[in-house]
Design a binder for these strands. Sequence first.
DNA 1: TACTCGTGGCA
DNA 2: TTGCCAAGAGT
Length: 363
Amino acid sequence: MQASTQAHPSPILDAPEVVAPLLLGWYDAHARRLPWRALPGDPAPDPYRVWLSEVMLQQTTVAAVTAYYAKFLSLWPRVEDLAAAPDADVMAAWAGLGYYARARNLLACAREVARRGAFPDTEEGLRALPGLGAYTAAAVAAIAFGRRAVVVDANVERVVARLFAIETPLPAARPAIRRATDAITPAARAGDFAQAMMDLGATVCTVRAPRCQLCPLRSACRAQAQGEPERLPAKAPKKAKPVRRGRAFWIERDGAVLLVTRAGKGMLGGMRALPDDGWSARADGHATPPLAGEWRSGGVVRHGFTHFDLELQLMLCDSPDPATLPAGEWWPVDAIEQAGLPTVFAKAARLGVAGKQERDRER
DNA sequence: TACTCGTGGCA
DNA sequence: TTGCCAAGAGT
């Protein structure tokens, strides 16, 4: 070993064990207070609450999750309560939070846990449950059960890529980042360590303009020593998003609008929705209304999904032919906010309500 | 491996 | 306005 010949010598390369004490000391003083989190050093919270928060937080900001977490805990205080809930209630409660497969897996997982009587208390056992991948299984094992587990989310990837100056672009860098994270993860307080890494990434080691002056790991950080820590981790270029065009249909009768429930898999699966013309990420819709009648445009909403943008034209029908009505659920227009529509259809529904008010004024 | 799958905030 | 991004999982 010839440390003196390294271009950028750093203590962590030879002594990764120095990281955890630095980080945990910082966490004891600076941990964010979050509704689903115990204070540093306190007993672990209810596994149900840890699991619920972790699933909601997948690819989702703390700010967006907070209100949903409170609502779910109020409606379903225990995993047995959630397991007993009707599918439609859970999907409607999740509406607006996105990535609806999470809600479908949440319910499947709750029912499996209720059947077993408790959450598995090992990373391997947790990993086998629906909706728990490598990250969430490790996080719940560490935070709720005090297991040593290697917890790697986007925050940890950023902190570790900078700490070790890992130049390989994501996602190819993931194996190296995981090995590095393993090397700095302590046996004791693994849950606090994981949450500390995520807090550090969220508040100090940020994507843009990291606040290195406040970082407890500054003395050990190779990217900081090299300068320009914000350039790491490098990322592979992204594909361009196509623009798709589609229609949704506002079919109203006696103050109620016709809603459908989308198929269980795929985009917005299991969610209440307006009838549409079959638009998808791959293709435009066919534009054909689901029933005969006089149609007029109620306006266009633009909505961005992860992998495509949608221009959705809302079509209004004032006089639907009762003989050709498709199957569905008649929902009072005045209570459309309670239908649990995903955001793209909630936007369209606002146009539908506006169109109804406009027509009513003309009469 | 690479793609699919939401949403809102921010610069 | 546009692009980037967040406590990823499933296929």
